[in-house]
């Protein structure tokens, strides 16, 4: 693996039950880079994230990771009304680092406390998770991943359903984490957002393009990625089709 890369895939085919949903993915990302995952619904963004996180096994090819990964899934996995505070959720992120019979100790609590502070929610440590807003929940999940020692963060549509203020806060957090050396893969439908990050990976059942935004976000690549769903906006710009979601959170 490239010495500087935290994450790398070589000839990766990924999918479900032996059926390939995403083929021939080759990319690498270094510490401090934000990588936009662009693609239509069903294009393979979530499949790639689940494969990088180890939830799915690679069908072909390889995945090389130089750090633990932490995932913030598209849909909040917490059960409604689950009796846990924000601090509890973050602390649960440390469980993989201790044997199953051990309870989180002083070290894990310190890590959780630092992670919660890093996402700007130290004041909400005792707030019940269900009482947090959608944006705060995403930040708590990022903190949970950080507390588990992850330097590779996999964020699946983290901005879906967030209002402008919550989106801004989350974007600032992502920038800060990248500056501190994390590699962050972010599935998104926002081309402008993708343009402001260090790398873009376009997927549509296979890898369409990977590289710096200026070289990847061309009309040809975007048409191959989004097909006829690509939206022309006045002034000659292009827009990816919006993510479909049910709830608007803040």
């Amino acid at each position: 693996m490239n010495n500087e890369a935290l994450v790398e895939t070589i000839g990766l085919d990924a999918g479900y039950g032996g059926t390939v949903a995403l083929s021939d993915v080759n990319f690498s990302a270094a510490a401090g880079q934000r990588i936009a995952l662009l693609g239509p619904n069903g294009g393979g963004k979530t499949t790639l994230i689940r494969t990088l996180s180890g939830e799915l096994k690679a069908i072909e090819g390889s995945v090389n990771l130089a750090s633990e990964t932490g995932t913030v899934p598209q849909h909040d996995p917490a059960r409604d009304g689950w009796p846990a505070t924000a601090a509890d959720v973050v602390l649960c992120g440390t469980l993989d680092s201790i044997p199953w019979w051990r309870r989180p100790g002083r070290r894990q609590r310190k890590l959780a406390s630092e992670a919660l502070a890093a996402v700007g929610l130290a004041d909400h440590s005792t707030t019940t998770y269900g009482e947090l807003s959608g944006g705060q929940k995403r930040r708590v999940q990022v903190a949970s991943a950080l507390a588990g020692g992850a330097r590779i963060l996999l964020l699946d549509e983290p901005f879906a359903g967030l209002d402008a203020v919550a989106s801004r806060r989350l974007e600032d957090l992502i920038e800060r984490l990248a500056q501190n050396g994390s590699t962050i893969l972010i599935a998104t439908h926002d081309l402008e957002q993708a343009r402001s990050w260090e790398r873009v990976l376009c997927l549509n059942g296979e890898q369409i393009a990977f590289g710096e935004p200026d070289s990847v976000l061309t009309r040809t690549n975007l048409e191959l990625t989004f097909g006829s769903d690509l939206i022309e906006v006045p002034g000659g710009g292009l827009m990816a089709p919006p993510h479909h979601h049910e709830d608007h959170e803040h």
Partner: peptide, 15 residues
């Protein structure tokens, strides 16, 4: 007592 945190994590999608 031993499995408390695992049980708690199971409702948060973390286990």
């Amino acid at each position: 007592r031993l499995s408390h945190w695992r049980l708690l994590a199971s409702g948060l999608g973390r286990a």
